[in-house]
Design a protein around this nucleic acid. Structure first.
Lengths: 349, 349
DNA sequence: TTTTCGATTGACAGCGCTGACAATTTGCAG
DNA sequence: CTGCAAATTGTCAGCGCTGTCAATCGAAAA
């Protein structure tokens, strides 16, 4: 049987309340008392019972990371989690995970979840923080939350970076390599990331003095498969782009796949770049030029902020962090163009 | 304020204990009582308070997944987690995550963790289930656990599949393509997976009537970088292999990278296959021939078994599941050999 | 009808902690 | 010293539930 607070109090010669104060870092404990309590606790190998503490304190000490179910299994979410766990270290808080089916009724699912587990705070992985219906309901229920990479400014607390500027820089990088016809594979509708990256794409074109041509902007949904389809669509054009900026790495890899299937060489015949810096982006060959976003740090910061908001509402905010363009092997100088349509139909697998 | 068990009891006209029985699926509750309780609970939108339940029942209703810290962020672990979460659904159990630093003192870390959070059960991700020191301590402390892909049979409860046979099949596949010199990139020392896959490699060679040559077996540690190094080592040989079986996909991708850097074509000049079927393995080009292991299912089963063992010790066991060889583009028929050492030094990046 | 015994139900203490608030001590000006 | 406010410490109820065990019920047996 583990030691209880009473045992510690007895051994330290103080009341249980004083022990409680020490363990909860409450003020108004003399150094002497604190020392005696700490010594006694160490000796008895005492750890507060989380359930008792939750019950008495009417808090769960739980932070839940909500994410889109289809992303379950992705290393992006896993990185976020690790960040959340880091933020919980040395606090009394604990992390929980909740995959959500956004195509069903996420509001109901969240309500059910909150009712059942009573988390003290939520961390919303994208694109959940973009759903105003959800945010408003959370406000109504008075549930604290922090949003990761949310487009809307409705979420007061969270973390993000300037995806639009990053996307623009990526396009400028391509333009600097001499590319004049740069395609874009857009993200999934409803994701803030889609809008931001598309806007950044246009910014980048503008800065490079290039015209926006919707013929070379095709829809995707962030998946590898959608990247294959989008890549095919772009390469089938009469006047295909010489470079493709995909809204994320998975779809960039899909486009790369399609290009290889057609016997193209990358980056000789086609430059491709992505966004996110997933593990796969470094493992493909040539490795993918992309935007590195520090997911783990983002998970950590989002959690820290929401925990901060519990101690000191008003102190917490949306933190803007920095990203990094990682230029790797998949982008290179544009080549003198071969005959129009030369790519079409070659070795299509 | 959410409804309490007392409110439900009052509304249903029964004692709180009867409500408790209904919610804990205890026997000896009449159909009538059950129906009334369920109706009342529904009406009041009642959910048992997890903390109160834990405190009174002296259980945490927590299952923790322990994994090796360096794997944090990998999709493998994430898939396991999703499986663990699936198993917890519709139970009162909840999943927790715990990255562990195996290079430090994992026994102490686990002890600390168990003391603090008091999980009712642990699920051990590889290679934790291979560490007898840890398992014996858990037995001492009387902590239930379930091991995923543990080599040792010390863990009575868990899940795994015949990695050795899968590896052998992979090698036989290569042999069937005409390869006579098949290299192996081994896994990290201490991982059961290393031993199993290496043994399977030898089995496969034997079945194909090929001799084992330690010159084409090089060490790796399951990382992409180690795959690059190992690939370089193999391709630098005077008589390099025409096919490489890597102990996992990351190192296989590394070897592929190295081959491409040398201007080789895959699978024309070199066949490569891996193990695990990570997301990246499908995204590289050509996509990787590999062994698919159903991680999510493994996480789920490992959890189910350990939860089962709480209700009915003796019923739980180590479940052996099936795998699948996924033959994709990275393996192909062997070619007539070019001049010895022809690969060496070409375009080394 | 009465008895018996298993099935069902309930009463109540107490799990280990914290919140509210009361009591006590301390520090310091008067 | 005394008085008083601030700092420190303690008391105790109660958080919402389950374990234990006693009470009650119902149906088959006598």
């Amino acid at each position: 049987m583990p030691a209880r607070i009473e045992d510690v109090a007895l051994k330290a010669g103080v009341s249980t309340k004083t022990v409680s104060r020490v363990f909860n870092r409450e003020p108004n404990v003399s150094e002497k008392a604190r020392a005696r309590v700490e010594a006694a606790a160490r000796e008895l190998n005492y750890r507060p019972n989380p359930s008792a503490r939750s019950l008495a304190g009417n808090r769960s000490y739980l932070v839940a990371l909500l994410f889109d179910n289809p992303h379950a299994g992705s290393s992006y979410v896993m990185e976020l989690i690790v960040g959340v766990l880091q933020a919980c270290e040395n606090t009394h808080y604990n992390a929980m995970l909740r995959p959500l089916d956004l195509s069903a009724d996420p509001v109901a699912a969240i309500e059910e979840f909150v009712a059942q587990f009573r988390p003290d705070a939520l961390v919303l992985a994208p694109p959940i923080g973009d759903d105003l219906k959800i945010l408003r309901r959370l406000d109504e229920w008075n549930v604290r939350y922090s949003a990761i990479s949310a487009r809307s400014s409705h979420a007061r607390i969270g973390v993000g970076f300037d995806e639009r500027r990053a996307a623009a820089e990526m396009v400028e990088h391509l333009a600097a390599l001499g590319h004049r016809r740069i395609g874009h594979i857009a993200g999934r509708a409803g994701h803030g990331a889609r809008a931001w990256r598309l806007a950044g794409y246009r910014d980048g074109l503008r800065k490079a003095g290039l015209d926006y041509d919707e013929a070379v902007v095709v829809d995707g949904d962030f998946s590898f498969e959608s990247g294959i389809a989008a890549g095919a669509q772009l390469l089938d054009l009469r006047d295909p782009p010489t470079a493709i900026f995909a809204a994320n790495d998975d779809s960039a890899c899909g486009a790369m796949h399609e290009a290889f299937e057609r016997g193209l060489s990358i980056p000789r015949d086609l430059s491709i770049c992505g966004f996110d810096d997933t593990p796969a982006s470094a493992q493909v060959w040539p490795s993918l030029t992309t935007v590195h976003q520090p997911c783990r740090e983002m998970g950590r910061i989002a959690t820290e902020q929401v925990l901060l908001s519990m101690r000191d509402p008003g102190a917490a905010q949306t933190v803007r962090i920095s990203y990094e363009i990682r230029i790797r092997g998949s982008t290179g100088p544009v080549r003198a163009k071969s005959a129009t349509g030369a790519y079409r139909g070659a070795r299509k697998g």
